[in-house]
């Protein structure tokens, strides 16, 4: 565990002291409160860096290495993820790695909901079909994109056949959970 940096106690995006998790048939929906995020944007003519040794992914892709991961967000732009480091100043650590690049703290800009299936890809893809206009056959493991979901803007990351992460703006956390949970529940019916 990382030592707390403050005597203030954080709450999760859904307002709890512990992250929320709920099971709907084959699907488990979990709030990932520990994920640290920082955006990285290259300066003009900057060479592609490899922060913490992480190779930055191509258009529409995500990569992971140990507790670190990254997904493409725009030309010359990525979101870097660090598992379990939500309480730390991860942006500062990233900036130290790539001092020339533009780095912004995004940890609390987004809420991350991890969706795991116990029955392979089908429930994940059925959930996606009801929520986002992405062709799941072309959105396999390692794909990441931003899109719209029920009037909200989200990142969708296919971690593996049976795992998906949906990130929404933190202030929409309740609404996004509702959208995911209602759909997951209906798939279970």
């Amino acid at each position: 565990m990382i030592e707390p940096v403050t005597d203030l106690a954080p709450i999760t995006a859904l307002g709890g002291t512990v992250p929320r998790s709920e099971i709907f048939g084959a699907l488990t929906l979990s709030e990932n409160a520990g994920l640290a995020l920082a955006s990285l944007a290259l300066r003009k003519d900057q060479e592609m860096p490899k922060p913490f040794g992480l190779p930055l992914p191509e258009v529409g892709k995500a990569v992971s290495m140990g507790g670190l991961a990254a997904f493409w967000t725009g030309r010359g732009q990525w979101m870097i993820e660090a598992a379990g480091r939500g309480e730390t100043d991860f942006a500062a650590a990233l900036k130290a790695e790539v001092p020339k690049a533009c780095v912004s703290e995004q940890t609390d800009g987004w809420v991350a909901f991890d969706i795991a299936s116990t029955q392979g890809a089908a429930p994940i893809e059925a959930l996606m079909a009801r929520l986002v206009n992405l062709d799941s056959t072309g959105f396999g493991p390692g794909c990441a994109t931003r899109t719209g979901l029920e009037h909200m803007s989200v990142f969708v990351i296919r971690r593996s056949e049976d795992r998906l992460t949906v990130m929404g703006m933190r202030t929409f956390a309740d609404a996004l959970w509702h959208a995911l949970a209602v759909t997951a529940r209906r798939l279970d019916d």
Partner: peptide, 13 residues
């Protein structure tokens, strides 16, 4: 212009 923009509205209370 060498400039980058990103929203941080939600990141900060």
């Amino acid at each position: 212009l060498d400039v980058q923009l990103i929203s941080t509205t939600d990141a900060w209370a």
